[in-house]
Computed example of a mutant assay.
Amino acid sequence: MSVFAEQLKKYRTEQALSQDDLAAQLFISRQAISKWENGDATPDLPNLIKLADIFGISLDMLVLGHTTNTTATETPSTKPMYPHMNGWDFLARYWWIFFGIAWLIYMFTKR
């Protein structure tokens, strides 16, 4: 049985919802809920979002079975945007800068 199937059954029973009750809230059949809980099928993304809202949990908790560890004080890891930029990469990305530099040189030397 998949982690999602176990989580779905766990949260449905914790909230004392029958498969019929949950199916009515999602506007789907009870058989679909049964297939999800048995691991025979998986819901699409809109239904996953609705399930997370119904249970009051995150998608990570519903699908993967664990909570996210990010807090307001943590900052995301900072990786350089282009970690291995060499001279050719620089020229390929910023070739237009040379036109501005050439124009400035022209303006200052034409006097």
Rank of each mutant, 00 (worst) to 15 (best):
M1E: 12
S2I: 09
S2A: 05
V3I: 15
E6A: 14
E6F: 12
Q7C: 11
Q7M: 12
L8C: 12
L8M: 12
K9E: 13
K10W: 04
K10F: 15
K10E: 06
K10I: 08
Y11A: 03
Y11H: 15
Y11R: 08
T13N: 02
T13S: 14
E14P: 00
E14N: 13
A16N: 15
A16C: 08
L17A: 07
S18H: 06
Q19D: 06
D20L: 14
D20F: 03
D21W: 02
D21M: 10
A23H: 06
Q25R: 15
Q25Y: 07
Q25T: 00
L26H: 05
I28R: 13
I28C: 15
I28G: 02
S29G: 08
S29Q: 10
R30T: 15
Q31K: 10
A32R: 09
A32E: 08
I33C: 09
K35D: 12
K35Y: 06
E37R: 05
E37Q: 13
N38Q: 15
N38G: 15
G39L: 07
G39N: 05
G39Y: 03
D40I: 10
P43L: 04
P43F: 04
P43D: 01
D44C: 01
D44Q: 12
D44M: 04
D44T: 07
L45C: 00
P46A: 06
N47A: 05
L48A: 02
K50W: 00
K50G: 00
L51S: 03
A52K: 06
A52G: 04
D53V: 08
F55E: 05
F55A: 09
G56P: 09
G56A: 10
S58A: 07
S58D: 02
L59C: 12
D60P: 03
M61A: 10
L62P: 09
V63R: 10
H66V: 07
H66Y: 11
T67V: 04
T68I: 10
N69I: 04
N69C: 01
T71C: 01
A72R: 10
T73K: 13
E74V: 05
E74K: 14
P76Y: 07
S77A: 11
T78W: 04
K79M: 12
K79V: 11
P80D: 13
Y82M: 09
H84I: 00
H84S: 08
M85S: 06
M85C: 11
N86S: 08
N86E: 06
W88D: 14
L91C: 08
L91K: 14
A92K: 13
A92Y: 06
R93K: 11
Y94E: 11
W96D: 06
I97K: 07
F98H: 00
F98V: 09
F98S: 06
I101R: 01
I101C: 02
A102R: 02
A102P: 00
W103V: 12
W103F: 10
L104Y: 09
I105F: 10
Y106L: 11
Y106N: 09
M107Q: 09
F108H: 01
T109F: 14
T109N: 08
R111Q: 12
